[in-house]
């Protein structure tokens, strides 16, 4: 629960968000805790959305030295 959200993977964050939603929907949690976990749920949601937002495709090609070692990258010329 105390794990830093920004270091969480998408699946971890999503799984915890699901747990929080289920707990709130059951209505069992005391008010104080409900508000705390709601705020964490919001933060988890934002984290998930951020992870999904940074979706871009950047394509690079490794350039190789004579000995087969990677020396750098270049754009893929199609």
């Amino acid at each position: 629960m105390s794990e830093k959200i920004k270091n969480m993977s998408f699946e971890q964050a999503l799984a915890e968000l699901e747990t929080i939603v289920a707990k709130l929907e059951s209505g069992q949690a005391p008010l104080q805790e409900s508000i705390e976990i709601y705020e964490r749920g919001e933060a988890l949601k934002n984290h998930c959305e951020n992870l999904l937002k940074i979706a871009e495709i950047k394509i690079e090609k490794i350039s190789l030295a004579k000995n087969g070692k990677a020396v750098g990258t270049e754009k893929l010329d199609e």
Binding site: A55, E56, I57, K58, I59, E60, K61, I62, L64
Partner: peptide
């Protein structure tokens, strides 16, 4: 990849 989830790609030729 573009259709599903654009992701960075590095090609080793």
């Amino acid at each position: 990849l573009e259709d599903r989830f654009p992701t960075n790609v590095i090609i080793w030729p």
